[in-house]
């Protein structure tokens, strides 16, 4: 079964149409041309689907980098460490 961190990376690749080597810890909203404000909406929808969570408007702005997204999903019950 695929680990959550792999699902997370795949979600970035699917939503933002990125290559595997483009998904890194440094990835942030607005710093790549693919992750713009509209790409962000697609990314959020994809994350909601993949992890079966609901990310509301306030949290959407919090999800502004690869790392911040992981922390947010962690708070919503997605475990990236002890799975």
């Amino acid at each position: 079964m695929m680990k959550n961190i792999e699902k997370y990376r795949n979600a970035f690749m699917d939503a933002l149409e990125l290559e595997e080597d483009q998904v890194s810890e440094e990835l942030a909203l607005g710093e790549t041309r693919e992750w713009d404000s509209l790409g962000h909406m697609i990314l959020i929808s994809t994350m909601e689907d993949v992890f079966d969570v609901s990310i509301d408007a306030e949290w959407m702005t919090e999800f502004d980098s690869y790392k911040a997204g992981k922390e947010l999903l962690n708070r919503l019950g997605v475990d990236f460490v002890n799975e």
Binding site: D14, A15, L38, M41, I42, I44, S45, E48, D49, A57
Partner: peptide
């Protein structure tokens, strides 16, 4: 806008 975007995965 945000409620309309829920579940949307294409530009």
């Amino acid at each position: 806008f945000m409620p309309l975007c829920k579940g949307k995965k294409k530009r």
